[in-house]
Design a protein around this nucleic acid. Structure first.
Lengths: 232, 232
DNA sequence: AAGTGGTCTAGACCACAAA
DNA sequence: TTGTGGTCTAGACCACTTG
């Protein structure tokens, strides 16, 4: 059958059908919850659950007193899961390798300090590590850590990545993420085992708890990397 | 006060607090809904709403009969909204420009045909267009369109992008999306107004309705482009 | 077989925004 | 002021999974 096992999913499917067939065209007001509930023979709460779900997915625009409208141009969202790099490698079937390359305390570059709301000249811990898949370099990690939130004596990154330590030990509440394409300079090319000037995929991420920045990381993937997801 | 206006949000906040403070440590089982409801003095449905929300956000792992556990390594998700390119440019404050460069029917490359579940040798419409910000090239669009779903006589892309026509006229049900870094070849560099060999950011997207592929597009952004979002 | 989350209902009241 | 969605409850039954 077309209808799902649960009533609210059937209601959702029926509403989505009406949107897609333009029985409820873009921009149009749809009947109120109570009417739909009566028509489909279920409780209003069930209709509410279904329509709320469609609204979260971007198909409907709902307002108290204003009623529910079909979105003019549904906003499509792509969701990426931020995986632990080890899992990403292992999932591809390759064996995962990790090498710590550098680990010292350094002065934050002024621009980064500003982004992280730190005074100029602040010193943070800087860790550079290489993640590999089989024998091939997979991703270079260049990370700055707030020494106040990540005590050096409690966080040893010789054997396993800062990524994993942080996930387990410093719950974070927010941050920023950006993707970009970059050209590999000599140092990067040497570490990633690719030609100088190669186009490489870069991810920059800043992680915060409440308002204090915890870590800023730049991940650079070896050439050929693709970040993929499906649209629902 | 810390608690939200609505009861289920207060319950959510309280549960999240217990997770963050490790009162409910990673991997631990938390009390069952009925117990939490009694403790916090609300209905079980209210607790259900709160915990379901935390489970969707990746903090909890719930199973019937198995109870609810705190996720060992919370999966963080990044959500990108797939904007219409015109809006993306306008939002940056620049004036938007659009130029149609090519529009003809061509044979699908074999590899692409396979991905799109089309027979080898199938001919689709191919549209190449440039989006610009002010006087600078912003993004080159190279798109294939299923002629059965996008009739040439009803879809004219001389003045506005296929992107916008599709959003308004062909509701889609799914697809795939991938990001990668690419090196600009001579043709691309010329059209994007950058040096040959530049690292450029590429997006590939395939859009389907039910099971038929509607369109496959490759967007290549001029050097310097960053795709950004915030983590919740 | 039993226990826990998932759903559903009927009715009620609340919150917000439009008139 | 009024109407619509948002939430809440108490109780019930269902569905999945583990023992």
């Amino acid at each position: 059958m077309t209808a799902s096992a649960y009533a609210w999913q059937s209601v959702r499917a029926e509403a989505l059908r009406r949107i897609r067939t333009r029985e409820w065209p873009p921009g149009a007001m749809i009947p109120k919850e109570a009417e739909i509930a009566q028509e489909l023979g279920c409780a209003r709460a069930t209709v509410n659950r279904a329509l709320r779900d469609l609204a979260e997915a971007g198909y409907l625009d709902r307002r108290r007193k204003g009623g529910t409208r079909v979105t003019e141009t549904p906003v499509r969202r792509a969701v990426f899961e931020i995986a632990i790099i080890r899992h990403e490698v292992e999932q591809s079937g390759a064996s995962y390798g990790y090498t710590l390359l550098e680990d010292r305390t350094e002065r934050l570059p002024d621009e980064l300090a500003a982004t992280l709301d730190q005074p100029r000249g602040t010193r943070w811990r800087r860790v550079i590590a290489l993640h590999s898949a089989g024998k091939r370099p997979f991703c270079l990690e260049d990370r700055w850590l707030n020494p106040g939130l990540v005590p050096r004596e409690r966080a040893d990154f010789a054997a396993s990545s800062a990524n994993e330590w942080l996930v387990r030990n410093v719950p974070f509440t927010g941050g920023e993420l950006s993707f970009q394409a970059r050209k590999a300079d000599t140092a990067l090319a040497s570490r990633l085992g690719c030609a100088r000037g190669s186009a490489v995929f870069g991810v920059e991420r800043i992680t915060r708890t409440d308002d204090a920045a915890v870590t800023a990381v730049t991940l650079t993937y070896a050439p050929g990397y693709r970040l993929t997801t499906s649209l629902g």
